[in-house]
Amino acid sequence: MKGCPYDNTFAEAMFKVFKTEFANGAHFSSLELDDYVHWLNNIRIHGTLGYVTPVECRKQAL
């Protein structure tokens, strides 16, 4: 919905993590970005998901 402050929350959080934990002054090829997305979804645990990865959380929900 236009003007809703929560519309872009996930994208903003993902880019914050990307900049602070992974990118920090590095130069990337597209392959490295694929590696980052794999890391973000399959390896990195998240506190609000009960300290599991997003993929594990999704599997538990299904």
Results as ranks from 00 to 15, higher is better:
M1I: 02
K2V: 10
C4Q: 14
P5L: 12
P5G: 02
D7C: 06
D7A: 10
N8Q: 13
N8R: 14
N8A: 12
T9L: 12
T9N: 05
A11W: 03
E12G: 01
A13I: 03
F15L: 12
F15Q: 03
F15E: 09
K16E: 03
K16A: 08
V17W: 04
F18A: 10
F18I: 02
F18H: 03
K19V: 05
T20E: 15
T20I: 13
T20L: 12
E21K: 13
E21A: 06
F22K: 11
F22I: 12
F22W: 15
A23H: 14
A23R: 15
N24S: 15
N24E: 15
G25C: 13
A26Q: 12
A26T: 02
H27F: 00
F28M: 00
F28H: 00
F28K: 00
S29C: 03
S29H: 01
S29E: 13
S30D: 15
D34E: 14
D35A: 04
D35G: 11
Y36K: 00
Y36M: 01
Y36A: 08
V37C: 09
V37K: 10
V37S: 00
H38C: 08
L40D: 02
N41T: 00
N41F: 05
N42H: 05
N42G: 04
I43W: 09
R44Q: 02
R44M: 08
R44E: 06
G47T: 12
T48D: 13
L49V: 04
G50Q: 05
Y51I: 08
V52P: 00
V52S: 04
T53S: 07
T53A: 04
T53R: 00
P54N: 06
V55T: 14
E56W: 08
C57I: 03
R58A: 08
K59N: 08
K59R: 11
A61G: 06
A61Y: 09
A61P: 08
